Amino acid sequence: MEQAINDGFNQGFKEVYLWAYTQIKREGWTPPDIIYASKPSGTYSDAHYVTLSCDGQMK
């Protein structure tokens, strides 16, 4: 579930919908912190540094 949500945001979607929201909340799932990368996803031909960050606290 979390991978699908991250994939949606990483593809640049403005919104990601959870159709099974009631069921996953009942089972104790909580949304992960969003992780941001300093470079966009893609294929690169040379090496470079990437910085990862998030708005929330680590769980």
Rank of each mutant, 00 (worst) to 15 (best):
E27K: 15
Y17W: 02
E15P: 00
E15G: 02
K39Q: 15
A20Y: 09
G12C: 02
M58C: 13
P31F: 06
T43W: 13
I5E: 01
G8E: 00
Q3L: 07
P32M: 05
K39M: 11
G56K: 12
Q3H: 10
M58L: 15
C54V: 03
K14T: 00
Y21L: 08
W19M: 05
Y21W: 07
A47W: 08
N10D: 06
F13P: 00
A47T: 13
S53E: 02
Y17N: 03
K39Y: 09
K59D: 06
A4W: 07
L18E: 04
Y17L: 03
A47C: 05
M58S: 12
E15A: 10
G8W: 00
P40H: 10
D33A: 15
K14M: 01
Y21K: 15
A37D: 12
I5N: 01
Y44R: 08
Y44P: 03
G56P: 03
S38P: 09
Q23L: 11
T51D: 03
F13K: 15
G8C: 07
K14V: 00
T51C: 01
S53I: 00
D7H: 01
A47E: 15
M58A: 13
D55I: 11
Y21H: 10
T43A: 12
D7N: 09
K25N: 01
Q23R: 15
A47P: 05
P40Y: 08
L18A: 08
T43R: 13
G8M: 01
D33I: 05
Y17Q: 03
V50Y: 09
A20P: 07
K25S: 07
S38A: 07
I5C: 06
I24K: 05
K59S: 04
Y49A: 11
K25A: 07
S45Y: 12
N10H: 04
W29E: 05
E2I: 04
S38E: 14
Q57D: 14
D33T: 07
N6H: 09
N6Y: 04
L18I: 14
A20C: 06
N10R: 04
A47F: 06
K14N: 00
Y21S: 09
R26V: 02
S41K: 02
L18S: 05
